[in-house]
Each structure stands twice: as structure tokens, then as C-alpha cells.
Computed example of a mutant assay.
Amino acid sequence: MVGTKRKRRESFGAIRKRESGRHQASYVGPDGERHNAPQTFDTMTDARGWLAIQQGRILQGTWSEMDTAKAESAQRGRGMLFAEYAEQWIATRTNRHGDHLRPRTASEYRRLVAGPLKPFAESRLTAITTEGVRGWYSALLAAGTKTQAARAYELLKSILTTAVADGRLKVNPCQIRGAASASTGKKVVPPTASELQAILDNITPRYRAAVILAAWAGVRYGELTELRVKDLERAGDVYMVNVARAVTHVTGQGFVLGETKSEAGVRTIVLPPHVTDIVATHLTEYVSRFPDSLLFPAADGVTHLSQTSFYKHWDRARKAAKRPDMPWHALRHYGATRAALAGATLKELQTRLGHSTVAAAMRYQHTAGRDEELARRMSDLA
């Protein structure tokens, strides 16, 4: 009679043979939880060797629950595709205040993942290499999409930095110096005073006040199209603009009402007296007097004005001013320049434009005409 061979019981931990023929090892740690090896083993001897190492760490007092969890997480992440991990990252990402990404930001990140980052979509995280990233980035530059390449690279680097922190990668393969800060080098040139007047003369009348608020108050488009009657306050011969909200259009969601771009975006801006009549005319002729009425609604008079609809009017006006190259955002630069020429300090510019830092305000302080004014002041001193 042939005896039945009994399965050997491990002195520490447990080993089981899987259907694949490979061996899986596990043990109960000092925390009372069962921990699996981050990989399976070819032989029983290899599995026992791994268990012996873990037992030795426990006996020496060097065992760490965090190290074990990190190893397990890394193993689980080996099979995770970049697109899957990127979606998890976007869904759970928080800013320095602990808030989730704003809808517009999350939508833009998903656009980048589905667009320029698509070559990595079906790649395992561990399969993304430094060489692969360099080749991908070089191809984007060759296609002439320098600014988008920088944005996509910055997002890729941020996602993979988190993957390193999660233990899914050992090192971040994004190692290209300066890639995240690359730009086309195109500068926004604000309109001259005569160009601005040409725009005002040719824009659809109900949008003249919109041009004024963008040029002299420096409001962003999302802030402008959420302004309501109650947000304008007259004080003597000037109007004050109270910016407290902004609206964005998110693909698949429509218009999303929310906060301004930053906390500094909540501000009150005093308009110069010479534009008072234009604003007063707009309030009288083009909007309802109800406090919650939008200052610049869509054609139905109720919903928010989309950029696509508005740009039909804007494009005609900028072409009439012989500035077909000028983006709407250039009017914000115009307001910053005029405030600087009027003697505004960087701190005052920062407050007026709603920037969180002085450095951001400096980017809008164009110096056109400033040299001449300074030269005249120097002459006055002489």
C-alpha cells in the first residue's frame, strides 16, 4: 500500500500552488493582517526564501506595514494601464486647499489624456520609459504643437509623480528639462487707444459695455459673462464692478457656475469716469433691471453667452480695427497697461486683476509708452 504524501506545513506563513503552477506566499504580520508576496514564485524554495526574509524582518524589528502595503500596491499597479490610472488621478486629485479639481480643469485634463497623451493610454505604467516619453514629446514638437506639448507633458509628469508616491513606479520617466514651461513665444499685444476705439465703433452695440469692462476693469471672460445687474454699483460719477463668481462651459455638462479663478479673483474694481455713460446706456437699453439679470446674456436674454456666439461679433470688430490677430484676452492686458501708466503699483495691479501673486500681475504690465512718460518726468525734474 502506497502511503499518501502529506502536504508540508510551513513553520512561518503559508504557500499555495496556483493553477498556473506558480507558488503564492503569504503570512500574518504583527498588525494581525495577512500579507501576500508582491509576486508569485517559480518554485516552492523561492517562496520559502521570501517568507524567511519577512520573518527575519519581524524578528529584527525592521518590518514595516507601510513597506509591505507599498510593495503590494506596486504589484497591483503593474497591470494598470495609464488611461485607467489617469482617470483615477483626475477623479481624486485635490488642490492645496483640499478641494477637488474644478469641472473645467478636469475636463481639460481628460481632453489631454484622450488627445496628445493617447499614445500612452494602453501602456502599463511600468512600461512607460524615459526614452518613450522623450520620443513622444519630440513628435509633438515636430507637429508644431509646442504649447499643447508643454501642457500635456506637465500633466503626464504630475500623474506619474503620484504613481511614484503610490509605489507603482520606482522613478518618474519624465526627465526632460524645461519641457513643462515651453511655449510658442507668441506675445499678447494689447490694442492701442485708437484700435480700442475702432473696436468700440464696430462691435455690436449691446456688447460695447462688455469691451469696456474687459479693457478698463480687466475682467476675465468667465467673470464678465456671469456679471449681473446687482454686481454694478454707481458711486457718484463712476461705476464699481463687484466680481464674486465666474462661469465656465464644460463639454458634456454645459455652463457650470462656480468661484473665480482664485480667492484673489473676488474683488471690487472702480471704472474710470470716462466710460460711465457707456455703462449707463447699457443698463438702460440692453438689460432688465432685475438684480439677478445677466449683463450680457445669450440671445434668449436668460442663459449665459457662449464664446462661440460672442466671437462672431468680436471677430468682426477686431478685423475692423485691423487687428485680426488680437484675442479677447488682449483687452485684459490693455487694462493692466493703462493702470500701470497711470501709476499703479504692482500690488495695486495684482488686486485690480485678481491675481494671487505679484509675479502674475507683472506679466500683464506691458511697458508700451512707459519710457516716454518716464523721460518726460525726468525732464521735469531737470
Rank of each mutant, 00 (worst) to 15 (best):
V2S: 11
V2K: 12
T4W: 09
E10N: 12
P30I: 13
H35N: 06
N36L: 14
F41N: 08
F41W: 08
R57N: 15
R57E: 15
T62S: 15
T62D: 10
M66K: 14
M66G: 05
D67L: 08
E72D: 03
I90A: 11
T92N: 13
N95T: 05
A106C: 10
A114W: 07
A114H: 11
E122F: 10
S123N: 14
A127L: 08
I128C: 05
T129K: 07
L140N: 10
L141C: 09
A180D: 13
S181P: 01
T192A: 00
S194M: 06
I199H: 00
A210M: 12
V211M: 13
I212Y: 05
G218F: 09
V219C: 08
L227H: 07
R228Y: 06
D231A: 10
G236D: 05
G258L: 08
E259A: 11
T260Y: 09
K261G: 09
K261W: 05
I269A: 00
L271Y: 05
T276H: 05
A280P: 00
V287P: 00
R289K: 13
P291G: 03
H304I: 03
S306E: 09
S309K: 13
K312P: 02
W328T: 02
W328I: 04
R332K: 07
A336P: 00
R338D: 00
A339S: 07
A340T: 08
R352N: 01
T357F: 14
T357N: 14
A360I: 15
R363N: 15
L374D: 14
R376C: 05
